[in-house]
Design a protein around this nucleic acid. Structure first.
Length: 272
DNA sequence: AGTATCTCCTGCGTGC
DNA sequence: TGCACGCAGGAGATAC
């Protein structure tokens, strides 16, 4: 269930192995992802990787001839396989990016909600990326910005901050956490938020994502082993997955509900 | 144009 | 032991 911190960790993880390296070819075992993988990819040969970047939850691998745009969906992973050319291919190992020096970047995705695109034009202008809002950790994501946007919308605030056109990278788990930290009820309509609340919300989204990225970083080494896990849930979640358990603020039982059919957990007393 | 709902998919946990 | 079911989740497509 990759959220932005996991995608960032994945980026950092593969970066050190493939930047400047020669991609010899790509093996596509199953092209049926969220969008079908272009058959063009199978014909790529011997391309130098220039840079690995991230935009929102998209991983961008820039090469001398074009760029890969990879989204991990909800169950996707990119694993680094080193010096194990005969490592058994498993059921959901859909794509291998094969490098010389015995390095394979293997895309695994049981639910196939992810996607892999190849583009020869600017990846940031790809139809999936062009409309994306600001990065939550960049300077242009401010309380003032969020306030201005929020006044024009009547979406429930939780859904609003999960909208990639408003800000990228805030998934369900961190939306719950950020609203709890900001003492804002997730049901509030966006246009009822005050500027101070938007300031606080922006600050908390930032802090929570940064902390999570740090935690991801500490498990980076494990992640890179073939059996590696990201240690995703090692982060302390204060509300997500804790419905019915005591609120760490006031001790009351945390409530749960659904917004946009997503699990929503909150404290009826601390948040308003 | 803004908002609500539907949809893609598999694995896992739960209840009968 | 097996089956049916609900849930998890990102985000574009479609419907209002």
């Amino acid at each position: 269930m990759p959220e932005l911190p996991e995608v960032e960790t994945t980026c950092r993880g593969i970066k050190q192995y493939i930047e400047g390296q020669q991609l010899t070819h790509v093996i596509v075992r199953n092209h049926k992802l969220r969008w079908p993988i272009s058959s063009e990819i199978k014909h790529l040969k011997n391309i130098k990787i220039e840079q690995v970047k991230r935009r929102g939850k998209y991983i961008i691998i820039e090469t001398q001839q074009g760029a890969f745009i990879i989204h991990l969906g909800m169950s996707g992973r990119l694993n680094v396989i080193m010096n194990e050319p005969k490592k058994e291919v498993q059921k959901h190992d859909h794509v291998d990016f094969v490098f010389n020096q015995d390095i394979i970047i293997r895309y695994t995705d049981p639910r196939r909600f992810g996607s892999i695109f190849w583009t020869k034009t600017n990846p940031l202008e790809h139809f999936l990326l062009e409309h994306l809002g600001p990065e939550p950790l960049e300077k242009n994501f401010t309380g003032q910005y969020l306030y201005k946007k929020s006044q024009k919308s009547r979406l429930q605030i939780k859904k609003f901050i999960m909208d990639a056109k408003i800000v990228v990278g805030v998934g369900n788990i961190y939306a719950n956490e950020a609203l709890f930290a900001s003492r804002i009820l997730p049901f509030r309509l966006s246009n009822t938020l005050r500027l101070e609340e938007c300031n606080l919300l922006v600050k908390n989204i930032r802090t929570i994502l940064k902390t999570a990225i740090k935690k991801g970083g500490t498990t980076l080494k494990d992640f890179l082993t073939p059996e590696g896990q990201l240690g995703y849930f090692s982060q302390k979640l204060l509300v997500y997955g804790r419905e019915g358990k005591p609120c760490i603020g006031c001790g009351a039982r945390l409530s749960s509900s659904r917004i946009d059919n997503r699990a929503t957990v909150y404290c009826n007393y601390c948040q308003n």
